[in-house]
Design a protein around this nucleic acid. Structure first.
Lengths: 133, 133
DNA sequence: ATATGAAGCGTTATGATATAACGTAAACAC
DNA sequence: GTGTTTACGTTATATCATAACGCTTCATAT
């Protein structure tokens, strides 16, 4: 469907590290994981992350300064819709979701205030079902 | 109404710097502003900021790694409600608001997913009315 | 085939944000 | 006045991110 360009070796490695992780990883953490694969410098990670985020395969979690692989199941191809995150502060797990009602509400506020909306960050910190018990 | 504890000298100085600013300030920017007042080290700023955020007098903007003085007009005393921010990428101005409909919607999602909600970050990047023109 | 242009890469250096760990001093409760 | 709590000052260090340089690779227009 979406005709994705092939990932480069570095991009594949970084994406793989994020897919294999339990939760979000910082860039330097990824660097450590990829040293065995030949990574030497932060820029190798940041450059790959930039591209992966641009492609929508990876999301940046602002409140953690960290990155997660996009959970499958939605495409959000053109970066318009807001992807929200529920972040468990106990286990670190991140649940990604899109809520059209939020989206609508956001539109209402922006319309009323003549605010031309760009990227929106919505991050809920708390305890997931398992950890709250 | 809310019986606030007095701020220390350092806390007053940091709060003053943020109140006097046009937009969000980074911690090191605040440090530079307060060197004439005797500040020497980042921790002096960060410790004051921690307290001010805890008191609800200052908000941290996650997507900027920066801080703003809370705009008057609401109290959000006990850190429960979500304060949202619309951030103009052109002029840097930040509009702070609370939207009960958002709040409600957030509650719905968290209820459905048995997520015990803590602090929530909602930051809209874009162009304010003046800058979009 | 070859110039050329875009994208990615590796490396060094540096900038920007944030906290650890230590000891001291002031404020307060009892 | 002793013990506790909170803030403070200082040094050092951790963590997150980008600038600037030159090289390689590869598609493609000529």
């Amino acid at each position: 469907m979406t005709d994705q360009p092939a990932l480069t070796r570095n991009q594949q490695l970084v994406f793989g590290a994020l897919e294999g992780a339990e939760g979000p990883l910082g860039a330097y953490r990824i660097l450590e994981e990829l040293r065995p694969a030949g990574f030497r410098a932060p820029l190798q990670v940041y450059r790959a992350l930039d591209r992966l985020v641009e492609l929508g395969l990876v999301h940046r979690i602002e409140s953690l300064n960290a990155f997660v692989a996009c959970s499958a199941g939605h495409h959000h191809g053109h970066g318009e819709e807001t992807v929200a995150f529920a972040i468990c502060e106990a286990c670190g797990h991140v649940t990604e979701f899109v809520d059209t009602e939020f989206e609508r509400r956001l539109g209402v506020w922006c319309g009323r205030h003549a605010f031309r909306r760009g990227r929106t960050t919505l991050e809920i910190r708390g305890l997931c079902e398992g950890c709250a018990a």
